[in-house]
Nucleic acid binder design. Structure first.
Length: 266
DNA sequence: CACGAGACCTGTTCGC
DNA sequence: TGCGAACAGGTCTCGT
């Protein structure tokens, strides 16, 4: 899926196109895309509501409406498009929201993993999420304390949205490389300077991702170009940008994990 | 508490 | 060329 920088990019690009628009009707093309409420209630309840703004929390897109909040998670292959509302839906369109200006918001999602919620209180969906990595309220001392309390390996821990919200497979590998930490390191063994370095690295890679409008890989092209600046992600066998050692790929928690065996010793 | 496997899905790329 | 396996930006659930 899009990770934090990609979702942030999408939220920012949709803001001028959606803020103030009224939703006229909804058309659900794949039943399971809708997490909550049922399709019948969804259509009736969302029709007539005005989109106040577009935002993000972790990897969730947040669209506060006049009365409810629409939450969208794009998971692996989801994307959002604004298009003319009269054309026939494309092959992988799963949900269409018709707007009051002749356009529609379309959720396109090849793999059908994406989910949408229409809820009164967004906290019912977002309540368990960990802190936002880019917010200054998260400081290095707290981050160290939270790492210190857990025995889990860094890679799966950083992917856990309840520990920290927004990192996915790309930015986790990139951050661990920048912080010079091995992905299998036990969190409890990370010392204070290393924890500070890791938090700093997470922020740097996320900010660079946002600055480059996210990454576009495989057939899901979103316009960003961060994929041209990967340090290790999907660069197996290619030289580490720091020391030239071939990048290694291992499997951690069934996720491809890329690292430099020299810069990130175990 | 922590980890691994399987599920949910479709499409592309890799290896023989 | 063809065909099956592996793999892909995510997360949930179940079993040990």
């Amino acid at each position: 899926m899009p990770e934090l920088p990609e979702v942030e990019t999408i939220a920012r690009s949709l803001q001028p196109l959606l803020a103030g628009r009224r939703i006229l009707s909804a058309r659900l093309l794949w039943e399971r895309t809708l997490a909550e409420p049922g399709s019948e209630e969804f259509g009736a309840r969302i029709s007539g509501q005005v989109i106040r703004s577009t935002g993000r929390r972790g990897k969730f897109l947040l669209l506060p409406l006049s009365r409810d909040t629409l939450l969208i998670h794009l998971r692996m292959s989801g994307d959002l498009l604004i298009e003319a509302s009269e054309q026939p839906p494309a092959t992988h369109h799963r949900l269409l929201l018709e707007l009051d200006n002749g356009q529609r918001l379309a959720l396109n999602d090849t793999r059908k993993f994406g989910r949408v919620w229409l809820v009164d209180d967004p906290q019912t969906v977002l309540g368990g999420l960990g802190p936002e990595p880019l917010e200054s309220s998260l400081n290095a001392a707290d981050f160290y304390q939270r790492l210190h309390a857990l025995r889990r390996q860094l890679k799966p821990l950083l992917l856990d949205q309840n520990f920290l919200a927004g990192l996915g497979n790309i930015y986790t590998d990139e951050a661990l490389h920048l912080a010079r930490l091995h992905p299998l390191t036990a969190a409890s063994l990370v010392d204070e300077p290393q924890a500070a370095r890791l938090l700093q690295a997470i922020r740097e890679v996320l900010e660079e991702g946002i600055r480059r409008n996210g990454a576009s890989i495989d057939w899901v092209y979103r316009g960003g170009d961060f994929q041209n600046y990967f340090r290790v992600y999907q660069r197996t066998g290619q030289p580490c940008p720091v020391c030239g050692t071939p990048v290694q790929r291992i499997l951690v928690g069934q996720r491809g994990t890329h690292f430099c065996p020299v810069c990130q010793p175990s």
